[in-house]
Each structure stands twice: as structure tokens, then as C-alpha cells.
């Protein structure tokens, strides 16, 4: 894999094709779990593991999967891998499983995994597919962290609610004054939709601004050469 390929995959995962902001995939678990940073990050971590594994498995087997039955085979592979990850976590990393465990079955309801398998891993070599899975997951991670932070700040005035479940020595931070009454809508699904909408609008605005700048930039030499040729 070249450096260029790597940065393209990374940019796609983190920003351009961000699963939550651009592809709008897997909104059901996303909205259910993003009530605070800790939950959101936990779901994203579980997703990264499963996506990397599913992508590498499908990419390795892609030449053996007939096109007509690829979807059932992908579902079979993803479902089997989620179960395997669930079992292995439970048996080998039980401490982590207690914290992360409830999020792993949630991934089954998440179409991100199947979408990446179909759109990327089925057409690319295993290494690139693994990187794609990891960066798609990281894109989900920062989106869920920001969305979770906004929701819990709005809903309860706190940050890192539930961190003591992961690191018993840490405790949540009270950001707004303790007598902040809390805006319940932040914690409810409509609040999640509204805030996700704001984030998508923000991303589109950033993209539009970047496109605007690119247009206004003085034409590059190659473009000049092109027009000169055309004029001649």
C-alpha cells in the first residue's frame, strides 16, 4: 500500500465519507448510544475491532465469493465474526467485556460493517481493507464522542458520565453549575437527531467553504497550459 492510498483511506474514513456525517449509516445504535461520551466511544471501539476483522476476512476471501450471493455470504461472515469477538472477549478479556460487552451485540444491528464490506473490502486487498475498517471506525469514534459530549452537556451539564465504570478511579466532571436543571431533550432521541443534524450542517458548511476557496485560488500552471493549448 502506498502512502497516498493510506492518506486517501484515512481522509475518507475520518472526514469525507464519515459513516455518521456523510454516509448516515447505522443511525439506530448511534442515536441510542450517544447519550454520553463514554458510551459513544465504547461502541466505536467495539465497531473498530469488528470492522477491521470483517474487512480483512472479506478482502481475503473476495475472489472465492460469487457476485450473485455476495450479500448473504458477507452477512454470514460479519455475524460469525461478531459472535467470535463476543465470545473471545468474554473468555479472555473479561474485565473489558464487562464494560464493552453490551455494545458488541449492538453492532449486529449496525449496517456500517456490511456497507464497508460491500463498498470497499470486496474490491480491495486485505491490508487496505483493514486500514479502511479502522479509519471508518475512528471517524465514527470522534463523531460519537462529539455528539455524546454535546448531549450530556446539554442534558445534565456533566461530561464523562459513566467513566467510573471503565476506570474506577476517575469520576465524571461537572461542567455547568451543579444547579443546572438539565435540558431533557439532549438525552432523548429527538435531541440526538437535532444535534446530529447540526453536525452534518457544520460538515457541509466546512466542505462548501473549502470548495469555495479552491475555486478562488489562482489557477495552477497545468490549468493555464490546458487553456493555452485549447486556445491555440
Amino acid at each position: 500500500m502506498t502512502r497516498d492510498e493510506f492518506s486517501t483511506i484515512a481522509y475518507n474514513g475520518l472526514w469525507k465519507q464519515n459513516t455518521a456525517l456523510a454516509q448516515l449509516l447505522g443511525l439506530c445504535p448511534l442515536l441510542a448510544v450517544s447519550t454520553n461520551i463514554v458510551n459513544g466511544v465504547m461502541l466505536a471501539l467495539a465497531t473498530i475491532i469488528v470492522m477491521a476483522l470483517a474487512n480483512v476476512a472479506v478482502a481475503a476471501l473476495r475472489n472465492f465469493i460469487p457476485h450473485e450471493i455476495r450479500i448473504p455470504v458477507f452477512i454470514l461472515i460479519v455475524a460469525a465474526l461478531v459472535t467470535v469477538v463476543d465470545l473471545l472477549f468474554n473468555a479472555q478479556l473479561h474485565e473489558l467485556y464487562v464494560v464493552l460487552g453490551i455494545f458488541i451485540p449492538l453492532i449486529v444491528t449496525n449496517c456500517i460493517v456490511l456497507a464497508r464490506v460491500e463498498a470497499f473490502a470486496a474490491k480491495n486487498p486485505p491490508l487496505n481493507s483493514t486500514v479502511d475498517g479502522i479509519f471508518m471506525g475512528l471517524g465514527l469514534l470522534w463523531t460519537l464522542a462529539v455528539l455524546g459530549a454535546m448531549r450530556e452537556l446539554l442534558g445534565s451539564g456533566m461530561l464523562f458520565t459513566g467513566i467510573d465504570m471503565v476506570f474506577p478511579s476517575l469520576s465524571p466532571i461537572q461542567v455547568l453549575p451543579a444547579d443546572y436543571p438539565g435540558l431533557l431533550i439532549g438525552l432523548l432521541p429527538p435531541g440526538a437527531f437535532i444535534l446530529l443534524g447540526c453536525m452534518i450542517a457544520w460538515k457541509n458548511w466546512m466542505d462548501a467553504r473549502a470548495a469555495e476557496r479552491a475555486k478562488r485560488r489562482p489557477p495552477t500552471p497545468e490549468v493555464v497550459a490546458d487553456t493555452a493549448e485549447a486556445g491555440a
Binding site: L87, L88, N90, A91, Q92, H94
Partner: peptide
């Protein structure tokens, strides 16, 4: 995997 992890679980 199920057989292998069952005792630990």
C-alpha cells in the same frame, strides 16, 4: 470458538 471459550466463560 464456542467450545474453546466455554470453560472460561
Amino acid at each position: 470458538v464456542y467450545q474453546w471459550t466455554r470453560p472460561a466463560i
